[in-house]
Design a protein around this nucleic acid. Structure first.
Lengths: 189, 189
DNA sequence: GTCTATAACTCGATAGAC
DNA sequence: GTCTATCGAGTTATAGAC
């Protein structure tokens, strides 16, 4: 007896599988057929829900954005008012803790961020916009007395991304949050 | 009039072009044909020099290893004796300065490191071995009084990789070496 | 809504002429 | 040593049956 799925559940299942498979092989490296197999359907069936391979990728990014937007917005305080170092460290720890619970997403973004360096990659524009916004938000957060927020934001953001990739490479063999906290403690004066 | 090339020059030209194209599209994303076009030859002609796509990738990594081994070995001092903080910072700056002069290589390794997280990627074993060795060397270098070298090596190495990727993302729009020095100054106690 | 069938193309790799 | 020609398999995407 085959499982029936309504439209929305089916789309969700495909997008979840797409996160994993694109994170593993990259946009160029995965095939619609391979993804469809993981969803126990044919490639034609999958393309009924998402018109093309590119549209599927954009749908993945779109949905993640909507979901993450709420969580990140709740973590990052608004306004340019300086805040205490302890507050900043706490916000950063919360972001990393959240990522530690979703390694497939960390991997997806690590993969796409490198692939999308190419100007003709379907996610190029997305990452240009997204990363500029991320730097702006971090600069706002890191607006500490006597610091250059832009430079510090660049260092903190890249150290966070780098450590998360290292964590995937070592197969999550160390405590990401604890190690990050040690890094942040030193990086932020 | 067509340019004549001997075997070694031709192989070198192909490998140089391969560094660029694999860095842009990844191992899965580039085609032998595309690479051959950049070298003004056919795919069959290219495969005469490197038997297969996988062999070509391994040849790229092999040659880079041999060339880099000399440079890195000259920079990294041997032995486990503790050394001064200033010495350590100087070695790290020299490594980053070297990378800043070869953005295509930084991009190649950034791409392959993520792709090779997959156990069936042709460079998986290479990166497992290479990164373990890098961590060991850095831990040796960072054997500073009162520190846990392994933990510190992980943080320093990942921060360096992360900043280099950020530098590519911002199209080399900031001074990589100066920014790294500021990071290292804070990260290393 | 998912299938089969197929179009139109590109892939890596090989064989053999020159 | 590089070419043309070609193979078989793989790709995205579409058309139409059910």
């Amino acid at each position: 007896m085959r499982t029936r799925m309504n439209r929305e559940d089916r789309r969700t299942a495909i997008l979840d599988a797409a996160i994993a498979v694109i994170g593993e092989r990259g946009f160029h490296g995965f095939s619609i057929r391979e993804l469809a197999l993981r969803c126990a359907m044919t490639d034609a069936g999958l393309l009924h829900h998402f018109g093309s391979k590119t549209d599927l990728l954009l749908a993945v990014l779109d949905r993640r954005d909507m979901q993450d937007e709420h969580a990140i917005a709740a973590l990052l305080p608004h306004g340019a008012a300086p805040r205490s170092r302890a507050q900043v460290l706490q916000v950063l720890a919360a972001i990393v803790a959240r990522n530690a619970q979703h390694p497939e997403l960390v991997r997806l973004y690590a993969m796409l961020r490198v692939e999308a360096l190419a100007a003709d990659h379907p996610a190029h524009a997305y990452f240009v916009t997204r990363d500029r916004m991320a730097r702006r938000r971090f600069a706002e957060l890191l607006n500490l007395p006597g610091e250059a927020p832009d430079r510090l934001a660049r260092q903190v953001l890249s150290a966070m991304d780098g450590l998360e990739l290292q964590w995937l490479q070592e197969e999550r063999g160390f405590d990401l949050v604890a190690t990050w906290n040690e890094t942040a403690e030193r990086l932020i004066p």
